[in-house]
């Protein structure tokens, strides 16, 4: 129990970031280069915080509202953004995050401006967070195994081919945005209920870089990628003190090395390596068998 007490906040932080990682993963998996997760998270966090603090709404209702808000924002955002591609999509979603941050700073009466909202009751427990992560993991897992996941993969790998095969690219891009928004909003809500105070600066450029690193590190092909990527980044500062002091440098080096040498992430690369080995073994076994048959 003692060890768990020490690492309890870290574990909460890890679970929270797994949620954000999934929100980022689902869009990247569909070939959408969106960095809007920070914007969804900011909206979700403020939605929950305002409902809980100012209107004494119950925590579950507030979280549901955050989820719905994220979903709605994703839907609205997807409508214009499904037209853009690549870098243009990334910049447009970055603009969205900046607009959200600027409006949060502007609407001081409601959001508290740069100071943010303080004294948020700490209503979320680790168990609730764990259950939420489990449900989201299951949903992402089943999406990955279903036709939607295959459509996402096809669009990411080659949009023209996917379109020729009858995959409606627009529809799946919208779907990816909506799911990403819902997850981002929900975990933004949890964020507000875990950390006592929120401010717009929490969801800025650093947040964006961190969430992208989770996926680059872990891989975007399966549910394990984001979990492993998040675990590595979150535990880095705990492993050694120099790493904690130079966290950004460690993160930067990891990003550069990973994207240059293992662009599919740790987990996805490992899986494909094992598959290759297995296929090679199977081939060899087959060859030997056929030799044996020929010999007899």
């Amino acid at each position: 129990m003692g060890i768990f007490e020490v690492y309890h906040p870290l574990f909460n932080f890890f679970l929270l970031n797994v949620g954000y990682a999934f929100s980022q993963q689902i869009v990247l998996r569909a070939g959408v280069f969106s960095v809007a997760t920070g914007g969804f998270a900011a909206l979700g966090a403020y939605c929950t915080a305002i409902l809980v603090v100012d209107y004494q709404v119950g925590e579950f209702l507030a979280l549901a509202a955050s989820l719905a808000l994220g979903m709605l924002t994703g839907l609205i955002l997807s409508w214009p953004l499904a037209r853009l591609r690549g870098v243009y999509q990334a910049i447009a979603t970055l603009a969205f995050v900046q607009i959200v941050t600027a409006l949060l700073l502007y609407a001081e009466d409601i959001t508290g401006g740069a100071i943010g909202i303080n004294h948020i009751p700490r209503l979320a427990t680790t168990w609730q967070l764990l259950i939420a992560v489990a449900i989201v993991t299951y949903i992402i897992f089943s999406i990955g195994r279903s036709g939607i996941g295959r459509a996402f993969d096809a669009i990411r790998q080659d949009e023209t081919v996917a379109g020729m095969l009858g995959v409606s690219i627009r529809r799946y891009h919208i779907l990816a945005f909506v799911i990403s928004g819902a997850i981002g909003g929900l975990f933004g809500g949890f964020h507000a209920l875990l950390v006592y105070s929120i401010e717009p600066a929490l969801f800025g450029f650093e947040f964006l870089a961190m969430v992208l690193t989770f996926i680059v590190l872990g891989g975007k092909g399966s549910v394990w990628g984001p979990i492993i990527g998040t675990a590595i980044i979150v535990s880095l500062p705990e492993i050694a003190r120099p790493l904690a002091e130079n966290r950004q440098m460690a993160q930067g080096i990891l990003m550069m090395v990973m994207i240059a040498y293992l662009p599919n992430g740790v987990y996805d690369s490992l899986v494909s390596l094992i598959r290759q080995r297995r296929a090679a073994k199977w081939d060899r076994a087959n060859q030997e068998k056929s030799h044996a048959v020929a010999g007899a």
Partner: peptide
């Protein structure tokens, strides 16, 4: 991604 990493460093 790579340039974000370089920037962080």
């Amino acid at each position: 991604i790579s340039s974000i990493g370089a920037n962080l460093i």
